[in-house]
Every structure is written in C-alpha cells, then in structure tokens.
C-alpha cells in the first residue's frame, strides 16, 4: 500500500497519521499535524528553514521521509518554550521577517545544548546550514553568543 499509518512523536506527543510513504517529514508536520512552524524554503536541502530535531539532531525535514522518523523523538519550533535562545533572538533583534527563524532557532538551540563551549569555528560550522535573507547574521551571532556566555556564567 502506498499510504500507510505512521506513528510520530512530536514535541513529546504521539500522533498516528496516514500518509504517503514518499511524503517528507516537513509535509506531514505541516499539512497533517498543522505544525507550520517548520518552513518550506526550497524543499531541496539548501536553506535550512525546515530544520527540526530528530533524535536531538538537526535535520532538514524536507529531505527526510516522515516514515523514517517514525518512533523517534521529533522536536519542532513549537516544542521550544521560553528557552534562552528564543529570548536571545528577540533581545538581539536576530530576525525580521521571521521566516528563517524557526529553522535557525532549532539549529542554534541544538548547538547551544550540545556545545556549550562552542568556539567561533563550531558556531559557523553549525549555523552556515541556514540562510537568512533579512538580517546581517551579526545579530544572530550575538544572540547565540549571548546564550553561550550565560551558560558559562551559570557554570
């Protein structure tokens, strides 16, 4: 059968959906679960607007099948709640139109969690996966660094 039942665990809630096996995770999140935070920007793996976490790893959800993500924990932007990185993005004016923001935030969130000691090189390696057309990136850099710096204060 081309369509099938898929069990997805998104933001700690489990969902059972019927989708084409060829449907991408991005498509299913948006059109079946109504989680429109992850954005389509190219559907080709190039822009990062669709980034979500699968098993805590940033993934471009336009390049992963929904069925591949079955039974793995998925975090979308809707799953982040008042985190330091969200606040930092606001304080540092790290977005304008906001279209790249969900993808950028998810990636930056994973970065700050996994590499609290990230140096410039690591920050660049992670964040060059996302395109922002509105900001100069300097604002995003400041936001990420402010969160990393706070992590250190708390240590």
């Amino acid at each position: 059968m081309i369509k099938c039942e898929i069990l997805l665990t998104v933001n700690e809630e489990s969902h059972s959906i019927i989708a084409r096996q060829a449907d991408t995770l991005l498509f299913v999140l948006r059109n079946q679960l109504g989680l429109t935070g992850a954005k389509p920007g190219c559907l080709n793996g190039d822009c990062g607007a669709c980034t979500v976490l699968v098993d805590k790893t940033p993934i471009k959800s336009c390049m992963m099948l929904a069925i591949e993500a079955a039974e793995k924990p998925i975090t979308t932007i809707e799953g982040l709640c008042d985190t330091p990185i969200q606040r930092a993005f606001i304080e540092q004016f790290a977005f304008q139109c906001g279209y790249c923001t969900p993808g950028f935030l998810i990636n930056a969130y994973a970065l700050t969690k996994q590499h609290p000691d990230a140096d410039d090189e690591t920050i660049q390696e992670w964040l060059e996966s996302n395109i922002c057309r509105c900001t100069s990136y300097q604002e995003i850099e400041q936001a990420v660094k402010s969160v990393l710096a706070k992590k250190h204060e708390n240590d």
């Binding site: 990062g48 980034t51 790893t57 940033p58 993934i59 390049m63 990636n107 390696e125 992670w126 996966s129």
Partner: peptide, 12 residues
C-alpha cells in the same frame, strides 16, 4: 567530509 554540503545536511 566536513566540507561537503553543510552540517545539517551532513547529519543525513
């Protein structure tokens, strides 16, 4: 490897 595509893509 680290110069292929970008990091998020390389996770896949």
């Amino acid at each position: 490897a680290s110069e292929v595509a970008d990091r998020t893509a390389r996770n896949q």
